[in-house]
């Protein structure tokens, strides 16, 4: 197990955003966290990434227990890709600058070659190197964000809804790219999404979260076979299949 969380909890002013979440991820595995807004799935990811400081419980990475403050060595091995490609790139920095920054932070050599290679790998190429984010489409920005995460050659990527802001045809391209990169670099993924089908496509194992708790953890194959037991998971599955008026009316309102 390269990553494990035990009894992870995060509290925001009296509200338990994450409540006793435990899971573990094997090396080279792709693990998904599914849930609706407010389920705490993104908060779990941010706690793993060290972006929020007030979590409780235990997080282990590669056998060592992680402190609240992460050192640079951690970020050389674990990188993150954010949901909104319009927000995760600095509006005043070119693609070149965005890719050079992690190299500078981690004192890496052969920067010129690495930047060119990273752009090549995400299918952008040299022509995009000196553009500003506003000169790129949403899919291109997300490719830049992926290149930025991969350029330090991490072992693990934390993916926070990486395609939810993109058109479906672009989503397919980005998901294919992520999958290819994972196999090429033997990466471990932890992916968060509200879209059950996207997580099922990308991950072999997934946990369903509702109101801060993991309600069910299962293999994707079992999910596809309809073996989900928890009522919330079943309902999420039904809703993900598409609009059905009878089905919708069977949901109790959540007022």
């Amino acid at each position: 197990m390269i990553l494990s969380a035990e009894n992870l909890g995060v509290e925001f002013t009296g509200l338990k955003a994450v409540d006793g979440a435990s899971f573990s991820v094997a090396r080279g595995e792709s693990y998904g966290l599914v849930g609706e807004s407010g389920s705490g799935k993104s908060t779990v990811l941010r706690a793993l990434a060290g972006l929020i400081g007030n979590w409780t419980g235990t997080i282990r990475f590669d056998g060592r227990e992680l402190a609240h403050d992460r050192d640079r060595g951690f970020y050389a091995r674990v990188q993150m890709v954010f949901q909104d490609p319009y927000g995760s790139l600095h509006p005043r920095q070119t693609v070149d600058r965005a890719l050079a920054e992690p190299l500078a932070i981690h004192n890496m050599d052969r920067r010129e070659a690495r930047i060119e290679k990273a752009l090549e790998e995400v299918g952008l190429g040299h022509g995009f190197r000196f553009r500003y984010p506003h000169q790129l489409s949403g899919g291109q920005r997300q490719r830049v964000a992926i290149a930025r995460a991969l350029i330090v050659e991490p072992e693990m990527l934390l993916l926070d809804e990486p395609t939810s802001a993109l058109d479906v045809s672009i989503q397919a391209e980005v998901l294919n790219l992520l999958d290819a990169l994972r196999r090429a670099h033997n990466l471990t993924f932890v992916m968060v999404s509200h879209n059950l089908a996207v997580v099922a496509h990308m991950c072999a194992r997934l946990a369903v979260m509702n109101r801060g708790k993991i309600v069910e953890e299962m293999d994707t194959d079992a999910l596809r076979r309809g073996e989900a037991k928890d009522p919330y998971t079943r309902r999420l599955m039904a809703a993900s299949r598409g609009y059905d008026r009878k089905l919708a009316e069977s949901f109790k309102t959540l007022d």
Binding site: L51, Y75, D84, G87, S88, P102
Partner: peptide, 26 residues
């Protein structure tokens, strides 16, 4: 609070570096 600042934090940048190179230009 912007994601692009969280992104440099998640790259392992120090606080001072973030302020000088990413926040101040804005």
């Amino acid at each position: 609070k912007a994601d692009y600042i969280a992104a440099v934090q998640a790259q392992g940048a120090s606080g001072l570096r973030i302020v000088l190179r990413h926040v101040a230009p804005m």
